[in-house]
Nucleic acid binder design. Structure first.
Lengths: 188, 188
DNA sequence: TGAATTATTTGACATAGGTCAAAAGAAACC
DNA sequence: GGTTTCTTTTGACCTATGTCAAATAATTCA
């Protein structure tokens, strides 16, 4: 889904606002597995994914990678707390496939928030939506068994199973890859 | 903390905007343990807590209550997804102490969002802040041991331990009350 | 294509935290 | 103030999922 399309569908921007907003984004082609942000850096940009899948992850003891979130086409991607609070990021951000992104810096975004009431509304709606998604995952992680969490994931990210490594999904779901592998075997 | 004070501290509202905004809220004294919202109802109001502690919780098998979140003085409280998406609430909402709240309906809030760009910004900032909090809890629940989660809770809700029942805190932290009791004994 | 690398599956065993039951302590109420 | 009710603690035992290690399977790339 294109950025223009996405914006129009979310808030009814007048054409000239839309054009100005889009003009503040920059198109980027990025290669898979090249970190967009590293842990400890302040995340400088908010990305919109036109094509590709991305993830945020962190390194635990013994260099073990733990995936925190997946981002797919038609979604915004960032190390959200870092980008909005300008704190050092707790996560790495990378694309898992060669991808096409549209990026915007914090300054430009703030300018757009201040300039257009509609844009501020978009920001509010996106935050609220993300809040709902994170709350859903929290619910899954806190109250569901490994198998139920696997089902939650299929609903939240349909078809991601075919695009990303089992180990990434397992850590996203808070289980080992051995456990996920056994669940897949048991679930037809 | 009063609502006026809180609003002023978050976004620099001109005095007349502030007065108009405040006038759309209603002061309510509510008794402890009386549900403000029941599971399955659409949550009609957003509350600001001037005095008291509240929680959201749901009923699991065998009528077991599971606390999902705590809300303290100077915070907004609601069944957030229900209030903003107008879906049936997944949770009950109640105060755990006799309390003083300021409430606003969705219609009035939407009117304020549309009327004042500043208000939209407040909404965005609150969403983002809540998102950060939920993400922090998710991180704790997913990656930390029972003992570390207990420490996370002390940081997120300092001093709540003295105000609410151990069983409520245990279920909030995703552990049994027996486990929380043993942690408290072990941690001086 | 075939060797090297990386990802997934399988098996044997360990453990944090759960469950169930009962005792001890607090709080509420007549 | 003593009885009832609710909350917290303690103990014995159990289980879902983790850990470690090794065997397959799938990808990558010379």
């Amino acid at each position: 889904m294109s950025l223009t399309h996405y914006l129009k569908n979310t808030v009814p921007f007048p054409a000239e606002e839309l054009a100005d907003i889009i003009s503040h984004f920059e198109r980027e082609s990025v290669q898979k597995n090249k970190p967009l942000v590293r842990e400890g850096q302040v995340c400088a940009k908010l990305y919109f994914i036109e094509k590709g899948v991305g993830r945020s992850y962190s390194l635990k003891e013994a260099g073990k990678e733990v995936t925190q979130w997946f981002f797919v086409e038609g979604q915004f991607m960032s190390s959200i707390e870092s980008f909005f609070q300008q704190n050092p990021s707790l996560y790495y951000l990378e694309m898992l496939e060669n991808a096409v992104l549209y990026s915007i810096t914090r300054e430009k975004l703030d300018l757009l928030f201040a300039r257009y009431h509609n844009m501020e509304k978009l920001g509010r709606l996106l935050s609220t939506e993300m809040l709902t998604r994170v709350a859903n995952k929290l619910n899954a992680i806190q109250f569901q068994t490994a198998r139920e969490r696997h089902d939650y994931m299929l609903a939240e990210f349909p078809n991601i199973a075919n695009r990303v490594a089992l180990g990434h999904i397992a850590s996203y779901l808070g289980m080992t890859q051995e456990t996920l592998s056994r669940i897949r075997r048991a679930n037809p």
